[in-house]
Amino acid sequence: MICPIQIRKPEMLLAYAAGDLDPESARLLEAHLAGCSACREIAKDQATVWKALDGWEAPPVSPDFNRRLYGRIDQGLQLSWWERLTRPFRPMPLRQALPLTATAGLLLMAGLLLQHTRPLAPAAPSGEIVRADQVERTLDDLDLLHQFNGTAATAESAQPDAM
């Protein structure tokens, strides 16, 4: 038969074996253990497990652990093109973002106000777009005009003689 303590309060046995149980609970459990061989066995074996685990020490940490870590952090900051690309768009801490946003807002408002208060400047002559074929056609027209004028002058000078 399984003792109710193993079902309802198994952590009590674990804490007792680890020496973590408060004195009052430990006293009550010890009274129970005196009459329950199953729990007594568990508590004894658990203490053995605890002691065995205590003997398992981890090796010391490499002295250059921090240097390697900071190297990786720096490398990430220097070489990651994606980070460099997205850094300006990352959410900024509030205490940095607030003054920057306020300054940008003030500059924008000042710009708008200046634009509205400035007197209207005379409209600049709008530049015409002159196309090459248009120029060529105009020159041709001028040539034709010259030719026409020449012909007209010749005809005019010949006319009085005929009269």
Partner: peptide, 9 residues
């Protein structure tokens, strides 16, 4: 763990 290590006691 008790089953595997209890013999250490």
């Amino acid at each position: 763990l008790r089953a595997r290590l209890a013999h250490m006691g």
